[in-house]
Design a binder for these strands. Structure first.
Length: 421
DNA sequence: TCTGGGGTCCTAGGACCC
DNA sequence: TCTGGGGTCCTAGGACCC
């Protein structure tokens, strides 16, 4: 049996931890650049505001309902997530961290899964204050279904167990295909065109036919809904395959020099992430695009793949390569909205291959010393305190983040103050 | 005016090898 | 006129997830 636990409205719940006054008020958390809603409290969901709604479209409604609006604070959410996963690891035999707020747990051979599940929820609530739901089923997909039910129906008291074949069929008959894990917009549309509207109807399809028409992904969906597990629990974190940094600009940019500063800054952030994970990259992809919502403007998207002569993770080397890539794909005359840089072909720093003519300590030993010094200063005084000149002096394209809460748990300067009377 | 960011997996097709 | 078969690797594009 698989159990899936996730935090309810996770980012909103994190924000409420240090603002108990918000427990009874509507709350939303915005995406980077304060563009879209990426977490909504139950009050907002009840208003029918969808996930990823652009802020400008719903702002009046939010204000009317006295909503507290936050910019995203990933330092906070990541820290709370780490504590959450630590608790799970201490209570469940095997845990797979699936996302920042979700984990699968191995419930095989558990004699009383309902009691264990409630214990886990209670411990998480007591120790870090995040409300959760747990779904339990014979496959990951059915555990996801159960979790969905536990969230939507308070009669489950946060824990839904699907372990009886008749009961599972009953549930699937009224379960919409678009709510199934792995069914996105495309597959939903194609299945509905074929008259398949419920999870039960999908479950009854021929797996071989599904493979022919919907690839192995569709075949696995059918098996998983039938209680035949195709997706196993994977407790060991897999090695990362890519790391990327991409951002929209706060306003559209047209000049090469401005975009170059943005790309240099993203390369800097990418280098920091690589060093944090003790990785180097052999391959970069740099991309730019015009504002796709300005349908009247000329559209442009382009990207370029750059094979590096030697694996890198230092600021200067990545900036140089990224800017060269940008020069190749930049075209004058467009309103650029976004740029990105991605590192592929990652390898641990201990394995990085030198070229034949490099000195034993590596050609860029000096660059690495500089990077180490930058990391030390920026860790101590805040990200971006010092950076390469290529990133520019003003950062005028930088994203907006006007409603960010303090880094309550990860910065000494921003610890919450408690007054005792 | 204002529309997120960071990931994974699968497949088809081309290039190349012997 | 007739023009192999089997395999790997790489890449782009599509689809999905949170």
């Amino acid at each position: 049996m698989f159990a899936l636990i996730d935090g309810n409205n996770f980012y909103v719940s994190c924000e409420r931890l240090f603002r108990p006054d918000l427990l009874t008020r509507p709350v939303v958390v915005l995406s980077n650049n304060d563009g879209c809603l990426i977490s909504r409290s139950n009050e907002i969901k009840a208003l029918g505001v969808p996930m990823a709604a652009p802020l400008f479209q719903v702002q009046d409604l939010l204000v009317k309902h006295n909503t507290q609006i936050f910019s995203s604070n990933f330092a906070l959410y990541g820290d709370i997530s780490a504590r959450f996963m630590e608790i799970l690891a201490s209570l469940a035999p095997r845990v797979e961290v699936y996302s920042i707020d979700e984990a699968f747990m191995d419930f095989s051979g558990i004699s009383d899964p309902a009691t264990l599940a409630q214990q886990i929820r209670q411990q998480v609530a007591d120790w870090i204050g995040i409300p959760t739901c747990i779904g339990i089923g014979p496959t990951k997909t059915l555990a996801k279904v159960a979790n969905h039910l536990a969230k939507k129906n308070s009669a489950y008291h946060g824990v839904c167990i699907l372990d009886d074949l008749y009961q599972i069929d009953q549930v699937l008959r009224t379960f919409a295909i678009e709510d199934i894990w792995g069914v996105g917009q495309r597959i939903e549309a194609r299945l509905k065109a074929l008259g398949i509207n419920t999870a039960y109807e999908l479950k009854r399809l021929n797996p071989k036919w599904m493979r022919q028409n919907f690839t192995v992904v569709g075949e696995r969906l059918v098996y998983e809904l039938n209680g035949i597990s195709c997706l196993s629990l994977e407790p060991e974190a897999q090695a990362r395959q890519s790391i990327q940094v991409s951002r929209s600009f706060s306003r559209s940019l047209t000049r090469f020099e401005e975009i170059r500063e943005a790309v240099a800054s993203y390369a800097t952030r990418l280098a920091e992430k690589l060093r944090l994970h003790r990785l180097k990259t052999n391959t970069l992809v740099v991309s730019v695009c015009a504002n796709r919502f300005q349908v009247r403007n000329r559209q442009y998207y382009n990207s370029i793949l750059i094979n590096l002569p030697t694996a890198l993770n230092d600021d200067a080397g990545l900036i140089q390569a990224a800017v060269q890539g940008l020069e190749a794909i930049f075209r004058a005359g467009f309103d650029y909205q976004k740029a990105g840089i991605m590192a592929l072909d990652l390898m641990p720093i201990t394995l990085a291959q030198l070229t034949l003519f490099d000195p034993p300590e590596g050609r860029n030993a000096k660059a690495q010393e500089i990077s180490r010094a930058l990391d030390k200063i920026n860790q101590r005084y805040g990200r971006g305190t010092v950076h390469m000149a290529a990133c520019g002096p003003k950062l005028s394209w930088k994203d907006r983040k006007s409603r960010k809460s303090p880094a309550y748990t990860t910065s000494w300067h921003q610890l919450p103050k408690v007054y005792a009377k």
